[in-house]
């Protein structure tokens, strides 16, 4: 364990209060740390607060109470623009499905963050192609649009996109849920392999026992609280 955790959340509370509905306490005071280099799964029944926790860590939403630091940055101090820049430079996201921009080709999707970061064309191409090669995305697919890719291929492109800018942390909300178990397993092995080689930290939410098996640390949420937290290996 290093001195400074990559994610440091203290007493996280998230209450959703949408209009006339009764307020929902999705997180009830969670303390949570993630060290750099972890490969961690967050499991738990539906509605237990997995997505909520990932969104808060990803600065996509603000907590009702508590404090989150990611990579040493207190997220509550950032403006909207500041959060966008923070995500661009520190985070990668992989969602369950519909990750890609429909009008861009696989390669164009993958290089999007690099483009926003101002990386020159040649280097963008090089990095995207090497990432594709790494993830087993064939040459022939690079110029296809998402609609012409299978679910597994789309998810691999999404992973390539999250990886290519070498973020400190990749947040993946049920990344295998839309895939068959074989494809899902292969994808997860790939991620774990990348985690070992590059040291990029992965944090996923999942229901999938296959994913849970492959995680090195498993955090289980129940009713917005951490029910168990175990590190294997």
């Amino acid at each position: 364990m290093s001195e400074q955790p990559l994610v440091h959340a203290t007493n996280l509370v998230k209450v959703y209060q949408d209009g006339s509905y009764v307020p929902v306490r999705a997180l009830g005071g969670v303390d949570f740390r993630v060290e750099a280099g972890e490969f961690t799964a967050i499991a738990g029944p539906s509605g237990s607060g997995k997505t909520t926790l990932l969104n808060l860590i990803g600065s996509l939403d603000a907590p009702t109470e508590g404090r989150i630091e990611v990579a040493g940055q207190d997220l509550s101090l950032l403006t909207r623009k500041g959060r966008a820049d923070f995500r661009l430079n520190n985070l990668g996201f992989i969602f369950q499905s519909h990750n890609l921009i429909p009008v861009l080709t696989a390669a164009e999707n993958a290089e999007f963050s690099l483009l926003l970061q101002g990386v020159p064309t040649g280097e963008r191409r090089r990095r995207v192609l090497s990432e594709f090669a790494d993830l087993g995305i064939e040459e022939g697919l690079t110029r296809r649009r998402p609609a012409k890719l299978s679910g597994g291929q789309q998810q691999r492109v999404a992973i390539a996109r999250a990886l290519v800018s070498r973020p400190k942390l990749i947040l993946a909300d049920e990344p295998t849920a839309s895939l068959d178990s074989k494809t899902g397993a292969r994808l997860l092995d790939k991620m774990r392999d990348l985690n070992e080689r590059t040291g990029i930290t992965f944090l996923f939410s999942t229901h999938d026992p296959m994913v849970i098996d492959r995680a090195r640390r498993l955090v289980v949420l129940r009713d917005g609280l951490i029910a168990s937290d175990e590190t294997r290996n």
Binding site: L60, K81, A84, F86, R87, L88, H98, L100, S113, L116
Partner: peptide, 15 residues
Amino acid sequence: VREFGVMMAMGLKPS
């Protein structure tokens, strides 16, 4: 809307 959400998650500014 979904697409814009993904773009924002990737760090594209709302503006």
